[in-house]
């Protein structure tokens, strides 16, 4: 109904830190002048490893509708294997952005009318020395490059605050590397 709201849906697995990643993006958006940021985790009977999703809405103005996103402008996929389990493009607007943590190049994916971006975040995270499975900060780098919505710097600052006392340097490095390694598919 309101056209000033950018809607981002995050698909992850329980335990992958999708909520933390969305919260970091929310913080960076707020400090970048978006007065309205609302992050709504969708709760059900989620378990570690099972598909989960989180809604993030961003606007220059206060957001009143806290309901989950049904027509996202962009979707973030924490694990390319989720593509086999979940219809991540459900409701995605024409020309929407799909960001996938995948070892495969973006050109390998074909979503009609959509823009696909990939980054091999598992490798990135491992190369900076993060424990296996800690990929949510790398995803933020992918997000920054793919959307151009926010500058990388406020995102890295938000990571630094969120991960205070828990390896902020490695997480920042993962985000920076994933940003640099993001591959762009052709719009089809």
């Amino acid at each position: 109904m309101r056209e000033d709201i950018i809607q981002i849906r995050w698909h992850g697995r329980g335990g992958q830190g999708a909520i933390t990643a969305a919260k970091i993006v929310a913080s960076a958006a707020f400090s970048s002048g978006f007065a309205g940021v609302v992050m709504t985790p969708t709760f059900g009977t989620e378990r570690r490893g099972a598909p989960v999703l989180t809604s993030l809405k961003i606007s220059k103005h206060k957001i009143n509708d806290l309901s989950p996103i049904t027509e996202p402008d962009m979707v973030v996929v924490f694990d390319h294997l989720l593509l086999k389990e979940v219809d991540v493009t459900n409701g995605l607007k024409e020309g929407g952005i799909i960001m996938i943590n995948s070892p495969r190049p973006a050109a390998d994916y074909s979503y009609k009318g959509m823009n696909v971006f990939t980054s091999d975040i598992n490798s990135v995270a491992s190369s900076v020395g993060l424990p296996p499975g800690i990929i949510n900060t790398g995803v933020i780098g992918l997000f920054a490059k793919a959307t151009g919505l926010l500058d990388l710097e406020p995102l890295l600052q938000a990571i630094n605050i969120e991960f205070e006392g828990r390896n902020p340097e490695k997480n920042i490095e993962a985000a920076r590397l994933a940003y640099e390694n993001t591959m762009i598919g052709e719009s089809r």
């Binding site: 940021v37 609302v38 992050m39 709504t40 985790p41 709760f43 957001i63 806290l66």
Partner: peptide
């Protein structure tokens, strides 16, 4: 519950 308790906003 959830709508406010578990939603993040500034």
């Amino acid at each position: 519950g959830y709508i406010l308790s578990h939603t993040y906003m500034p």
